[in-house]
Simulated assay, not measured.
Amino acid sequence: MAKDKYETAILFGKPLQEDASGQLFVEPNEKVHPWRIGKHTKGKLIGPGQVFLTEQNQKVLLVRVEALAFKNRHDYQPMGRFTKVVLPLAEEKSE
């Protein structure tokens, strides 16, 4: 890979909410949104279930990863950084 290029991938995720106890959960019927790995993305991709942060520090649950051609990277909003937090994919608030 040329030195001016970097790994790219589309990250499909659902924004997370936090309850009064600090537990993270996905709102029922939350839609999946795409982001991409950017040039300045920090952390390491673990895989589905991982929590990542957007550039605005919104926590997102990663549900799937797809390949992205470097030339198409500007079609998607870059994410901020990966965390080491991994949640079950079926994570939903139960009441």
Rank of each mutant, 00 (worst) to 15 (best):
Q56C: 15
P78Q: 02
D19S: 10
L45R: 06
Y6V: 03
S94Q: 13
H33Y: 15
N57P: 03
P15T: 13
S21K: 15
G80T: 01
L11Q: 01
Q23W: 08
V65F: 07
I37P: 00
T41R: 02
I10P: 04
E91F: 05
G38W: 00
P78V: 04
L45D: 06
D75A: 12
G49P: 00
Q17A: 12
L89Y: 13
F52M: 00
Q56K: 15
Y6H: 11
E92M: 05
Q17W: 10
E30Q: 14
K5S: 14
F52R: 00
L24D: 03
G49N: 12
K44A: 08
M1N: 13
E18N: 12
A20N: 10
A2C: 14
L87Q: 04
I46H: 07
I37G: 08
H40W: 04
M1K: 06
L61Y: 03
G38D: 08
L87V: 14
G22V: 08
K84R: 15
Y6C: 11
H40A: 01
K14T: 06
A69L: 12
L68M: 02
E66I: 13
Y76V: 08
P15M: 06
K44E: 13
K31L: 14
V60C: 02
P34M: 02
K31W: 09
Y76C: 07
Q77R: 11
N72Q: 02
A9C: 07
T41Q: 01
A90D: 15
E66Q: 15
L89M: 13
G47M: 00
S94T: 10
E27C: 12
F12E: 14
P88A: 10
E27W: 06
V51S: 15
Q50K: 07
E30V: 10
V85E: 10
F25N: 07
E27A: 13
D4L: 04
Q77L: 01
Q23F: 12
Y76S: 03
E7I: 05
V85W: 02
V65E: 00
T83R: 07
V65K: 04
N57Y: 07
A2W: 10
K14N: 11
R36L: 06
A9Y: 01
L61S: 02
F25Y: 14
A20D: 11
K93W: 13
E95F: 13
W35N: 01
T8V: 14
S21L: 14
A2D: 12
